[in-house]
């Protein structure tokens, strides 16, 4: 079985803070990580590798420094890695991003394509299903658990708002995975050492199977018209008092609001 996993390097948003005075983002010094849902997707692929000897190729789109997440994927156990990088990819919205990734995946053999459900820096959850459409693959999103019959059929448990759903689908197909689907493995020492010897294949727009007009800013139907900070809402009253007095203030507010 051949598996392609799409991963993204994202800023660790749990580390992002607001400037208390200006209300703007402080981005400096924020570390980059492998997007958590994508890591869940990679773990799923590696579990299939452990059980069924699958070959796992990871692919990411981004600047040269995105190579870091590919090295991390090698250290976890991925077999091959592709970095999609080209100025022609720049300014891509989700549709143009999915076109680039689908264009690269078309050059590969695959039985299963895996993406994370969504990236923590955008939360759109769009790129996975869009890739599936471009490749004419059935999709199963919000994957919590996957069982493989060893031949052709996947039985997949997917999360819904109020429970779960179990579906069946044959390969080839695309799944989008939740970070909570599994516990991603750590990089091994051997893996880390080996990770730097493995080659990362770098692909530009000329190497992938897609029309260039569908890439980057040009291939993006959506455009940002303007970006603005929300402006800090004027703060209410802040009390620095002892516990007893604090309780008193809260109680009187609860009474005022007819909650007690």
């Amino acid at each position: 079985m051949k598996i392609v996993v799409c991963i993204k390097q994202v800023p660790d948003t749990t580390e992002v803070k607001l400037d208390p005075v200006t209300g703007t983002l402080i981005r400096e010094g924020v570390p980059s990580i492998m997007n958590p849902d994508d890591k869940g997707g990679l773990e799923l692929a590696l579990e299939l590798k452990d059980k069924y000897n699958a070959e796992v190729t990871v692919i990411t789109m981004g600047p040269m420094q995105a190579e870091q997440v590919l090295r991390e994927a090698f250290a976890m156990g991925a077999d091959k890695a592709i970095l999609l990088t080209d100025r022609k990819f720049a300014g891509a919205d989700t549709l143009a991003t999915s076109n680039a990734l689908a264009g690269a995946i078309r050059t590969l053999e695959y039985d299963l394509v895996i993406t994370g459900r969504q990236a923590i820096d955008g939360d759109t959850a769009q790129v996975g299903p869009q890739i599936a459409e471009h490749l004419d693959l059935p999709q199963v999103s919000y994957l919590q658990n996957l069982k493989y019959d060893g031949k052709k059929t996947f039985t997949i448990k997917r999360a819904t708002e109020d429970g779960y759903q179990v579906v069946e689908v044959d390969s080839p197909c695309l799944v989008t995975v939740l970070a909570t689907a599994n516990q991603a493995r750590y990089m091994t020492v051997k893996g880390i050492v080996g990770a730097f010897d493995k080659p990362v294949e770098v692909m530009g727009a000329d190497k992938i199977e897609v029309d260039e007009s569908k890439l980057g800013l040009k291939g993006s139907p959506t455009k940002v018209k303007k970006a603005f900070t929300k402006g800090v809402k004027s703060a209410g009253q802040v009390y620095e008092v002892d516990t007893e007095e604090a309780v008193g203030i809260i109680i009187s507010k609860l009474k005022e609001k007819f909650i007690i």
């Binding site: 919205d93 759109t124 959850a125 299903p129 869009q130 459409e133 999709q139 999103s141 919000y142 139907p221």
Partner: peptide, 21 residues
């Protein structure tokens, strides 16, 4: 869950933009 599964699939099929959330 349904809208976020269906929306992007449609946007790719119709070649149009989709803005989330």
């Amino acid at each position: 869950v349904i809208g976020r599964d269906l929306g992007p699939r449609l946007s790719a099929r119709l070649t149009t933009g989709l803005t989330a959330d």
